[in-house]
Design a protein around this nucleic acid. Sequence first.
DNA 1: TACTGGATTCACT
DNA 2: GTGAATCCAGTAA
Length: 186
Amino acid sequence: MDKKRKELPHSWYARDAVEIAQALLGKTLRYGDCEGIIVETEAYTTDAASHGKVLTPRSRIMHETYGHWYVYFTYGMHFCANVTTNKDGVGAVLIRAVEPTKGIERMEKRRRTTELRNLCSGPAKLCQAFDITLAENELPIGGAFTIYDAPELPADEIIASPRIGIRQDTELPWRFTIKGNKFTSR
DNA sequence: TACTGGATTCACT
DNA sequence: GTGAATCCAGTAA
């Protein structure tokens, strides 16, 4: 275990979701014994696709916090993990895919596959692999469920693309991936 | 109270 | 490429 690595401070998440979504690429996600490098993110603010568009009990955390986990249940069977952002505003970044680095055996059991590329290459897949559930919703980022700092990636290593198939009435959220990485979704 | 649709995944064709 | 699985949050009435 590298004792020099540092958790991202709470204040780090106070910025805009789009900024955070890019900056999270290459950082290390840890939950319990499992770790992985974040390779794909998606920024949500007040756009049409975002839960943050309307203030509801569920989306309250997007409005009132930054540097917290926002975990929600969707499609009747899947969980998705977000970090809340924006000190003065609404924002969250969905962690869509990670490259597994530790706890791979556990992930393989939970995902029922040994195909490394298929363990965490999607928002619901990584929640299943890491065993992230609603129990983690609204927890502050840190401790056993945290993100470790890493050098910022150069801009030419990042691919930015608008989400596909979204309603076109308001600003688009943005998806960010690491160029050439094999562990992203799709 | 009832209904609708969804930030997905996977099996099947 | 297509559709089923599955159930909760949000909304309408």
